[in-house]
């Protein structure tokens, strides 16, 4: 059976939320809630309540980036101070910890920020090619889109739900 994507556009969050609740409470056997997506001009305030917890593990990237930035930064500094280019220190430490800690702190932040942005791109699925027809420029303006992917029968039921909640427009595409 073919898989179809359907996008309903609503003029406010309330109508979109009501239709998602009805889709969720409909217990369609072929529908997984992970296949329900909200597209909106701002973040939906009740997105977690509607779609369930969808964690974005960006903070793990942040943690890894910070540790990596700090450790590699310190190793870079220490190795450059301790290598054969080492300047004559006149009895002072070859690897002076207090100034190195200042620099390590900066490089920890550098690594943290860079890898956080990398994590953002990975978790948000960016950059993405906008090949799907199921995008409407009204979504970036003032309308809320609810997109569902499922089989033809389920999509037909969902279309009725969208119509009951006065969707401004409904579009479909066959994806496989």
């Amino acid at each position: 059976m073919s898989t179809i994507r359907i996008l309903g556009l609503f003029d406010d969050f309330d109508a979109a939320a009501h239709s998602i609740r009805e889709v969720r409470d409909g217990h369609f056997p072929a529908l997984k809630m992970d296949d329900v997506t909200i597209k909106s001009p701002i973040e939906h305030p009740d997105v977690e309540e509607l779609l369930g917890d969808r964690p974005a593990p960006i903070r793990k990237y942040t943690f890894a980036g910070s540790i990596l930035g700090g450790v590699l930064g310190f190793l870079f500094l220490a190795s450059s101070q301790g290598n054969f280019f080492a300047q004559h220190k006149g009895g002072k430490p070859i690897i002076p910890l207090p100034p190195d800690l200042v620099l390590t702190y900066e490089l920890l932040i550098l690594g943290g920020v860079y890898i956080t942005v990398l994590g953002f791109l990975i978790c948000a699925g960016l950059p993405a090619r906008m090949r799907s027809d199921l995008y409407n420029i009204k979504i970036s303006e003032d309308q809320i889109g609810v997109m569902v992917k499922s089989d033809a029968h389920t999509v037909a039921e969902i279309k009725k739900i969208f119509e009951r909640h006065h969707a401004l427009s409904i579009a479909e595409e066959v994806i496989e």
């Binding site: 997506t37 701002i42 973040e43 699925g125 906008m130």
Partner: peptide, 8 residues
Amino acid sequence: MGTDRQWR
């Protein structure tokens, strides 16, 4: 595209 995943 302003998906919930992107916003989060």
